[in-house]
Amino acid sequence: MTPIRSFTLLLSLSGCAFGLETGLSATPIPARAGGGVVHDGGAAAEDEGLPLTSVDLTGRLYAMSAEDMTVTEPPGLAGLWDKVLTTPLLVYVEKETEDELRLDTALANADGTQNLCEKVRQFPDASWQENPVFAAGPGAFDTSFAGSAATVRDVELSGVIDEYGFGWRDGTLDATLDTRELKPALGGLDDVCALVSDLGGECFACTDGEIACFTLSIEDVTARFVDAEFDVTPECEG
């Protein structure tokens, strides 16, 4: 198995904060999820200038899958992303105020319903002062890579919500990963940064000064409203 293939499988098996799930093929967002209808996001307000005034986003659930986004960093990961994000990623608006959105994220099952056996993670409160544009982060998520504890840092999520709240477009998702936390899951491989380089990325100095971190950047994120339930404190059955 090539080093790049090993690296890709590591991500797909990690259960990472962005909803990376075990599997080897992309699962599209279904027409119905948990009995709820999935709506295509309409066009966002022209020039990002028309705020939502008649829609309360509290309790709204959105879903996105691999084909709803473009990986730009490291660029070589773009063609492999459907092997990494194999089930939809859910984002739930727990609360909307005039200035902020409280957003939760979790994995979906293959049928698009919430995976109740996966931890729900909360983004830092998202700025909503530029309604219909929201921006969450930076923040950090504790996670694991193939059983090894790790932290995904500098997590940021943004997008432009359409005027009816049925989706968002022009989204971005960014994070910083520390390659030293990936080594145990890669069998103690010494130079994970070499794999990042093979994918067209580049390692840079982490907060402690060691050249060991790299950026994951995703653009053109679109999400669709899902008329389904979401549990912020799920209980795994079985």
Rank of each mutant, 00 (worst) to 15 (best):
L107D: 11
A43I: 05
T113V: 10
G42P: 03
M64H: 14
P88T: 04
E100I: 12
L85H: 14
Y62S: 10
P75E: 06
E100R: 14
D40G: 10
G42E: 12
A108R: 01
C117D: 05
G59Y: 04
H39Y: 09
D99H: 10
A33M: 01
A45P: 00
L61S: 08
L80V: 03
Y92L: 02
G41L: 07
E48T: 03
T70W: 07
E100T: 13
L50A: 11
A110S: 06
A106D: 01
G79T: 10
L61Y: 07
L107H: 03
T53K: 08
L77S: 09
I29S: 05
G36C: 02
T87G: 05
T97Q: 09
W81Y: 15
L57S: 05
L52D: 10
A78G: 01
E46C: 02
V93P: 01
L57M: 09
V71F: 07
P51W: 02
G42W: 03
R32M: 01
A63E: 05
V91F: 13
Q114T: 03
L85F: 09
E46F: 07
A44Y: 13
R102A: 14
L101M: 09
L116F: 08
V91R: 14
G112K: 01
E100H: 12
L77K: 06
D82V: 01
G36Y: 03
G36L: 00
R32L: 10
L90T: 03
A66L: 13
V37H: 10
P75L: 10
G79M: 03
D82N: 05
L103Y: 15
A108L: 03
G41T: 14
K119L: 02
E100A: 13
G34Q: 08
V55G: 04
D47N: 07
L101D: 01
I29F: 03
T22F: 13
A66V: 02
T87M: 00
L103W: 09
E96D: 05
E100S: 12
A33G: 15
V37Q: 03
R60N: 15
T86R: 13
E67N: 10
D40E: 10
V71M: 08
A108N: 04
G34D: 00
A43Y: 14
Q114W: 08
A45E: 09
G23N: 00
L50S: 04
V71Q: 13
A106H: 04
M64S: 12
N115D: 07
R32V: 04
